[in-house]
Amino acid sequence: MKKGVLGEGLMDGFSIITLAIILTVFFVLFANEISYADMKNISEIITSKKVSNDGGLTLKNLMNTPIEDVNLYEFIILNQNDKDKIKEKVREPMNKICKVDSKMLVDNPQEVCLWYLEIKFTDKTIFLNGGYDPIIHSFNTDAIVTTGTEPKILPLVGFDKKFRNSLEYSLSLPDYKKNLVNIKLKLFKGLS
């Protein structure tokens, strides 16, 4: 009887030590902010993810791009009633930033990039988009529809691709009447 009591006492001691060790481990892990996701596959190298957003530099530079003795932003304000003229001027620099063609869709889908530019005036909104208009078809990739505010992928049988990286930049700038113009640029990069 005495032995039994001693054994139970020792077991309590073991339990407490074990519990203390477990709690210490969890405290150390949480204090180091190691997430469960990291612990789940601990053999996997924990990598830093590159900050893919450039802080709006692309949109700022785009709006400052010189066009016919003014910058693109002023050109847009001056020609806000002529969407085709704006489209023509925007396409050239945008093709440098973001491009897509049917060959790229097949050979190099991770380099594919589509864009959507929205310029919101107080009385109207101009939408422009890049890539194929209105529908991209490719021999062995999904169909991409670019008519909406952002491109949509219509999966074909056996394919289910998504854009790996979607970026959105926005700027608010005053026009000549000191009304704010809201500009939004969306980039959809890389099919996977």
Binding site: V25, V28, L29, N32, I34, D38, M39, I42, S43, I45, I46, T47, S48, K49, K50, V51
Partner: peptide, 16 residues
Amino acid sequence: FVVNSAIAREININES
């Protein structure tokens, strides 16, 4: 095992 794995993990910041 858990503690050792957490301590010995490799942190790769080359991309940053």
